[in-house]
Amino acid sequence: MGTLTIGCFASLVGSKSLDFTLKLANAAADKGHKVNIWLSGNATALGKGHQKHLKDYSTGEKPALELLKKGVEICECEACALARGITKPDAVEGIQWNAMHWYLAKIHGSDRVLHVGGE
């Protein structure tokens, strides 16, 4: 099995890139691959806890928690999160906070890297 690292650079609302990232990560984890997800920019909205999962709205907390249970590592850019008013007491438990070198370090150990978003 391989290691896949996904960098997501999209917003939670108004873009399906984050939903795609979570679904792809889930499929890869189910196949037994090690998966890392880096969240940058507006994608850090995923790390905000207490999301309300309204039907047909783009939310990510529940799938993120399921991914964490499967051993997927999720980390968000601390500066991007703080800039958006997401603070640690508010954050989804289990999602890591770090700086951009976390992503590069995960890339170093990965067989494949996918860069999602950036639109």
Binding site: S40, G41, N42, M100, H101, Y103, L104, G118, E119
Partner: peptide, 14 residues
């Protein structure tokens, strides 16, 4: 968008 800035900052984090 933030995209190009993030390209620079991620590269610099090397």
């Amino acid at each position: 968008s933030e995209t190009s800035t993030l390209g620079f900052t991620h590269a610099i984090s090397w």
